[in-house]
Design a protein around this nucleic acid. Structure first.
Length: 313
DNA sequence: CATTACCTGCAA
DNA sequence: TTGCAGGTAATG
């Protein structure tokens, strides 16, 4: 479920509900593998009596900071959900773990697919866990210039690169497709081939998409709910993700779905032309035409872009 | 770089 | 029954 906007939405709702509350211990453990470290007994002992100081987010991780340098780190993965409810209330169907508060409520972690993970870390361990994450796209310090330079160092295609949390933190499958569409870049474009203005456009597009999505409370198309159980509204605002065969909102061309790096990838073949797909690539495939017409097309291509032309060979 | 694994539910 | 799903780590 969760990419940066969803995790940020959960963070806000969770902070409003639990900052200031004091944990009493572990109260429910249906799926022990959810807890990476430490052993459940130790975790329970270490959180008991600890007060929630803040709920933070780094990339797609949530970090519930407790006094005494303890941090409850949560990764929702695909279907994880957090909620707060009285302990004596029936637990959700897919509840996996719950942490009791001293006031009779509990923090619940539900997770249909059981991919989600929770760890209790001290400050040093927390820093180590976040060490390899790339920049936060909404941080003021993340500049278009730095981003352009980083792209220029990579030959990888844009789609998998933007999904790489070490390159840039927080994007997932939905928002990569949405950002590439807004920047008019094809998902298979090698990063190094993105022109400067393309990098600037992509930098802006990433921020716009993430900000808009946070403003909509994230994207719900099946499982995702925030810390109050509410759905996000961004699904209806998306432009290409899961809109295969629907008309592009800009030009009307049917949205295409391909698989890149094993992930469903959606784009507009007109607005996001394939890498290198200029007249040089299109002309050879054009239907047979009078020689004079072909020559004119070639001449115009050379004149307007100055790229390497295959016509002469 | 692609594939598989981790899991389960749901729609075609 | 098959394929697909918001993520990521571990394999060839």
């Amino acid at each position: 479920m969760p990419e940066l906007p969803e995790v940020e939405t959960v963070r806000r709702g969770l902070a409003a509900q639990i900052v200031g509350r004091v944990f009493a211990g572990l109260s429910f453990l249906e799926w022990p593998r959810t807890i990476e470290t430490p052993a459940p007994e130790e975790l329970s002992r270490r959180i008991a009596g600890r007060r929630v100081e803040a709920v933070r987010r780094r990339a797609k991780f949530l970090a519930i900071a407790l006094d005494g340098d303890e941090h409850l780190v949560v990764h929702l993965r695909m279907t994880g959900q957090l909620s707060v409810a009285p302990q004596d209330t029936p637990r959700e169907r897919f509840a996996r773990v719950a942490f009791a508060f001293a006031d009779g409520n509990e923090l619940r972690f539900s997770d249909t697919r059981r991919f989600g993970r929770i760890a209790l870390l001290n400050g040093v361990e927390l820093a180590a866990r976040f060490r390899d994450l790339g920049p936060e796209p909404l941080d003021a310090g993340w500049s278009a210039g730095d981003f352009a330079a980083a792209l220029a160092r990579r030959r990888t295609r844009l789609k998998p690169l933007l999904l790489d949390q070490a390159f840039l933190a927080g994007l997932g499958n939905i928002y990569v497709d949405e950002a590439l569409f807004r920047a008019r870049l094809h998902p298979l474009t090698p990063a190094v081939e993105v022109p400067e203005e393309g990098a600037v456009a992509l930098h802006a597009a990433i921020r716009e998409v993430l900000s808009d999505a946070i403003g909509s409370g994230g994207t719900t198309f099946s499982n995702y709910r925030d810390a109050y159980g509410q759905e996000g509204d961004y699904y209806e605002r998306r432009r290409v993700y899961a809109r295969t065969d629907e008309p592009c909102p800009t030009c009307g061309t049917q949205i295409v779905r391909i698989v890149v790096g094993g992930r469903g990838t959606h784009y507009c073949p007109t607005c996001q032309p394939a890498p290198g797909a200029t007249l040089a690539r299109i002309v050879p495939f054009a239907p047979a035409a009078p020689r004079r017409l072909v020559a004119e097309a070639g001449a115009e291509y050379v004149a307007t872009t100055g790229g390497d032309d295959t016509d002469g060979r």
